[in-house]
Design a protein around this nucleic acid. Structure first.
Length: 424
RNA sequence: GGACAGGUGGCCGAGUGGUUGAAGGCACCGGUCUCGAAAACCGGCGUACCGGCAACGGUAUCGUGAGUUCGAAUCUCACCCUGUCCGCCA
């Protein structure tokens, strides 16, 4: 969410941000409406508060009169009228305020200046690591995965539906291995504090990180409780600080957690859906950082490096993309995607998305810090990144490390955890 | 799920209808004292919004939301959360 004052003082900056995202046509009218609502709202506030001040004064007069043993009937009668006016004006004010709040929750974050304008065709590769393997004669991961009995797509479809995976044998153990490898790396070498979080969260948490209200149809919701299945551990991990006032000396705060992630992928049917490429439930290790505003730019580079380190240790070739404004997520001000090369499907697969949210989430979730004793609280900046999402990493391993005989070499760092050098 | 007891400022904690934004304490900031520090003493110290160049004024805020009332931290209702006991259960 933006500072509500932006509507009044920097509406053009808002419009420019929407334009750079390619959303001005859709969102420009909302900004116009917000400007009008802000004016209405302030007029109503003044009218209401004027009457409330009068009522408060009258009430005190009643108190004095009664204490003195005199009649207060005249004052009481006149104040009753004020009360009715206040009720009416407050209703008007509430309506304007609610509509304005709803608009503010629907406006995406402003991209940082260095973010390229335009849609995803303007994403830029900022660096790459490793040599992509030639695609010829490498089988796609779903073929190897099935033939080595690592994944069972049919079983997943039978018990839940397409897009739900059953891992079996070493495939199942690989999930545990990835979880331990990534969490140990981030807690042991990168200084993250580990959490184990709820997989279902309330509406407040989902609004806090920006999934709601705009993307409700993408979320799984429970029928009988006001809870949503998390699409990423970003939600619980960021919201552990919801409504907190952090001592500035504690920043930056770095948290990590494994979680299952649930995505309805409504409207994505048929697009990259084979095998492990796009599924409704998957596992992921997430990194979240809370920082002072002046540090967030550097912290994004640091966090992205932590995610890259996972791929480097796994020996998987990847590239880093700076997303263009139009491809940058709703809450994010700047995002790097990490894409790993999967020679079997011949594609770069997104395995991580590392973002700086500025104060956008902190404002929604009310996460503040006190820079120093005696100073006023400010909103923190939040950042997060996957490090990493499992299914596409598995896909890349099954393809990149595939041998001519159909077996798959295990990356060195996973061998102790899997208890084998080769998947056969 | 049931029965009780609670949710007050950064923290602890008083306060059951009328100058209560809210006693007191801790923490914090400034000062006196001191060579310096501690202690002691004096003073200050929430947040948000509206108006104002500012000084400042106003409004709101005692879990959340409704309600009663001229007036609510205080009364009523609903909901959320916490604690204790009981029940159930992996």
């Amino acid at each position: 969410m933006h500072d509500p004052r932006m509507v009044r003082e920097q509406a053009d900056a808002l419009r420019d941000g929407m334009r750079r995202r390619g959303k001005l046509d859709a969102l420009g009218p909302l900004i116009d409406r917000a400007e009008a609502l802000d004016r209405d709202r302030r007029t109503a506030i003044q009218a209401v508060e004027e009457r409330k001040a009068a009522r408060n004064a009258a009430s005190q007069q009643v108190a004095r009169l009664k204490k003195a043993g005199e009649s207060a009937d005249d004052v009481v009668a006149s104040t009753r009228v004020l009360g009715e006016e206040i009720a009416r004006l407050e209703q008007e004010l509430g309506a304007a305020q609610n509509e304005l709040d709803a608009i503010l929750l629907e406006l995406p974050n402003l991209p940082l200046p260095e973010v390229p304008e335009g849609d995803e065709s303007h994403n830029t590769v900022v660096r790459s690591w490793g040599e992509p393997r030639a695609a010829e004669s490498v089988k796609p991961h779903w073929e190897v995965g099935e033939s080595l009995r690592l994944i069972d797509l049919a079983a997943g479809a039978k018990i839940s539906g397409s897009g739900f995976i059953v891992y079996r044998g070493m495939g199942a153990r690989l999930q545990r291995a990835l979880m331990n490898f990534m969490l140990d790396l981030h807690t042991g070498e990168h200084g993250y504090d580990e959490r184990w979080v709820p997989l279902f969260v309330n509406r407040d948490a989902m609004v806090g990180t920006g999934q709601l209200p705009k993307f409700e149809e993408d979320m799984y919701a429970l029928r009988d409780d006001a809870l949503f299945a998390i699409p990423t551990a970003e939600v619980p991990l960021t919201n552990v600080m919801h409504d907190e006032l952090i001592d500035g000396a504690q920043l930056p705060i770095a948290l990590t957690a494994w979680s299952a992630c649930f995505r309805r992928e409504a409207g994505a049917a048929g697009k990259d859906t084979r095998g492990l490429l796009r599924v409704h439930q998957f596992d992921k290790v997430e990194l979240v950082r809370f920082t002072a505003p002046e540090d967030s730019a550097a912290q994004l580079e640091l966090l992205t490096g932590h995610a890259e380190r996972v791929l480097q240790l796994l020996g998987l070739p990847y590239r880093v993309l700076l997303l263009a404004a139009g491809d940058t997520g709703f809450s994010s001000a700047k995002t790097y995607d990490l894409e790993v090369f999967a020679p079997g499907v011949g594609k770069w697969l997104e395995v991580s998305s590392c973002s700086n949210f500025g104060e956008f989430q902190a404002r929604r979730a009310n996460i503040r810090y006190r820079p120093a004793k005696g100073e006023k609280p400010r909103f923190v900046h939040t950042l997060n990144g996957s490090a990493l999402a499992f299914p596409r990493v598995v896909a890349a391993i099954l393809e990149h490390y595939q041998q001519p005989d159909g077996t798959v070499l295990v990356p060195d760092v996973l061998r102790p955890l899997l208890g084998t050098d080769v998947l056969r």
